[in-house]
Every structure is written in structure tokens, then in C-alpha cells.
Amino acid sequence: MTDASATFSYADATADGGRHLEQRRARRHTRRVRRLRVVIPIVSAIIALGLTAAAVLPKLLPFSALAGLSLTADGLVMNSPRLAGHLGEGRRYEVVADRAVQSLLNPARLTLEGLNADLDMGNDQRVTIHGNEATYNTSTEVLDVSEGVSLVSSDGNEAQLNAATVFLREGRVEGDGGIEITSPRGHIRAGRIDITEGGARIRMTGGVSIVINPAP
């Protein structure tokens, strides 16, 4: 606190005017000290919080690949996350995306960009689902894919949908807003599709038109 004493001797020499100047400087000094007394603890708390978050968070998040984890305004951003689980009856699913943003307000809610989901639909049928934009709820395991969805199944069928909701746990898919399925055997257009029982039952409504090509 050396500079305080230095100003004191200067004030002597100029009598009254000097004393006034000196009091103002002293008041400014005490304000600065009071501010520092508040600011320093806050800064240290933030640093401490950041350190614990960086240490603790990776253990909380169920993602195996945590490379490229960054904290941004709209939430925790994971680059090329990978997420795997089971669909019931031993059927596996895996969800991979270019980017996943986990909202800090509701950690179970993920926004996925450039999404690829791979579903085992039972009786060795696999379906891969690609969506440009999707939201995935890790607690209910429901995937909502909007802005264009394509499903490709392992037996050569391909479906383009406007939007689809995938209930991963039940192996169920709902898609509305128009669907087009093309397969070696022909193609199908419908307004809405509901795939249940792991793909064993498919219901299409809202007008259906089908062209079945002759058997090979």
C-alpha cells in the first residue's frame, strides 16, 4: 500500500487545496479495495467450478467418445458423439452424429445434427436411419428426426420420409408428412407410416399407391 503514503507528503506542501485532493484520492482507494474484496472471491469460485465441472461432467455423461467436448451458449457441444444401447430382446441400436448439443436446462434432451442411427429390427433385419436434424431424449430413448429422413433396410428397401419419430426401446417408427419407399420389387408412396413389432407390422395411411414390379 506504498502509494498511499507518498501522496500524503505532497498534500502538506499545498495546505488547504492539497488536503481536499488527498481526501478524494483516499476515498477512491478505499472503494477500489472494497471492490477487490468482492471480485476476487467470485473469480476464484468460478475457476473452482470450472475445474470441478471439467473433472466431474465426463463421468456423468453416457457418451463413450468425449473427444471434442466444448461448452457453448446453447449447451454442451459434443463433436461426433457415439451412443449405443439395446432395443429390447437383445436388439442393439447405435446413434452417431456430426454434432450433438446437450441443453444444460434439460440434460436428457439432445439436439443432433447429421445423424445416423443403426437399428437392429429383429430377425436379422437392420435399418439405418439418416436425418439432418434430430432431437433425442436419453431417458425415454425417443428420437425425433425432422427435415428429411431416409431409412435404408438391409434387404434393399429404402424409405424417404418428411419426418419420423423412432421409439428405440420398442423398435417402433412413426413417420408422417409423406413417405416414399423404393425397393427392387417396386415402390410405395403413402401419407403416413407406422412400423410396429420391430418391423413385422407396417401400417400406411393417408392414401397409398404402390407399383409392384414383376418377380425377377
Binding site: 407390422r201 407396417i202 401400417r203 400406411m204 395411411t205 397409398v208
Partner: peptide, 18 residues
């Protein structure tokens, strides 16, 4: 002949794979 396509249109369709 089995080499011309068959076209089917309807309001709804249910496929029971089993």
C-alpha cells in the same frame, strides 16, 4: 403375363409380415 407391373391404390395398407 408376370412381367408387367401391378399398380395398387387405396386409402390405407397394412402389411403383416409374419
Amino acid at each position: 403375363d408376370q412381367n408387367t407391373p401391378i399398380e395398387i391404390e387405396a386409402d390405407a395398407l397394412e402389411v403383416q409380415d409374419k
